[in-house]
Design a binder for these strands. Structure first.
Lengths: 230, 230
DNA sequence: TTCATGATTATGTATGCACATATTATGAAA
DNA sequence: TTTCATAATATGTGCATACATAATCATGAA
């Protein structure tokens, strides 16, 4: 067997596992066995099995050997899209408008969510995202001015607040939570929907090196779905 | 520098990138430079940079070198939890009850979603998931009996339908979509909430080698949030 | 017999080297 | 100027080797 790249071997072993050659929880052959079988070195098999472990297909333990995961973990990986991209990928023209932009002291709940010292100034924004001039999503956002002081001068006509922050503070971490929300009066008006309609909602707090950057809540128009593969 | 493992170097380089030492899109030093700097072999640096590329932090091209991703893609990876685990991780006792179990011809919309040939028999289930005897989620599920004929004999007292299917048809792919739904009469009654309440909803179609396995819709109780990090 | 303790060994992990491959740069010939 | 071949260079890959670790086995004392 000459196409013995670690990729090829990884695929081969994955196929054998998926096809049911070994049951869930079964011990699969050791690295030396695979190496002999595929005519390559143990190192190459190692890389393949490591990758399979990262994929969540197998579990490995020293001396214990490698076994098929008893209960394979369905791991979803998806890119949280920027609103502009969502709209444009649906074939609509994107636009956004800042409806409100103030400097305020944040409410108490936000102080704990964003770990803000007392007295920290924040920018508060409300924006609407439009697809072909129809409301697509409504956004409420707080920006920690202690972390991003230059935000007060940000020009949000070209870029949305989100895009501006991603460019300015790249590689931040974030906590995301998804939920369903009933539209209150303001949301109903903004999104031009009925009061009480069920909206898909994304909350996101972003961190840069232990300091909070921004917290936003995005209310998608009625019927919006976030789709991805696992 | 002696802790020059590929892990350590990966972390070190990631830190330098995150700290802004190079801007978005910038070319970062080559493998040999890093190897000299960290006092290790190029192989070790190569593994570190490859890992960083998989993380989505850098882009690599032969001869072109390695550069910081121009617009870092915030990729969320999370494990879609089994309802039992969600409930138990909240410290509640889990239970599930099948309320309805029938063999039926699926509706037309499902035939296209699950790519079912005309006349394919399906099992239809309605189940309630309980946390400490309180409703936690309501599930509607169709199972393609052409793919999983043994499901008709499945004992769903020990395992939920989902767990039974995961054990029986492991390593399946899935399309997931998340949305917000207004509770209809049945949902309101099942989850003991008000008619019209906003519910976080997960639709999932599962495939095994081009054949659909199951399609389910899970309506979570009011206030449920799916949280994860990016 | 039971238990603790250390040796053994199968297995997992990391690294340096040599070579492979892809892309760009260079420059000579048409 | 265009075209083509060749060199230069950065990353990709496999292998041999050395090292780390944990389950097991052997040993001996209580």
């Amino acid at each position: 067997m000459n196409n013995a790249t670690h990729q090829g071997i990884r695929d081969a072993i994955r196929t054998r596992i998926v096809s049911g050659e070994w049951k869930l929880g079964d011990l699969i052959p050791g690295e030396v066995d695979f190496a002999a079988h595929y005519g390559c070195s143990r190192t190459t098999v190692n890389r393949a099995l490591q990758a399979l472990a990262e994929e969540g297909i197998v579990e490995r333990k020293r001396k214990g050997g490698t076994r098929v995961r008893p209960m394979p973990a369905p791991q979803a990986q998806f890119r949280i899209p920027i609103v502009r991209e969502q709209v444009e990928s649906l074939g609509h023209a994107y636009a956004t408008k800042v409806l409100k932009r103030e400097i305020e002291l944040p409410p108490l709940s936000l102080r704990s969510d964003m770990q803000l010292p007392a007295g920290t100034q924040c920018a508060y924004l409300e924006s609407i995202h439009l697809a072909d001039d129809q409301p697509f999503a409504f956004e409420r956002r707080w920006v920690n001015l202690a972390t991003v002081p230059s935000f007060v001068d940000a020009n949000l006509h070209e870029l949305s607040a989100n895009e501006w922050l991603v460019k300015t503070v790249p590689f931040s971490r974030g906590d995301v939570s998804l939920s369903g929300t009933s539209a209150d009066n303001q949301l109903a008006e903004m999104l031009q929907i009925q009061n009480g309609a069920a909206l898909f909602t994304m909350d996101r707090t972003t961190w840069f090196e232990d300091r909070s950057v921004t917290r936003m809540t995005l209310f998608y128009r009625q019927g919006y779905r976030l789709s991805f593969e696992i």
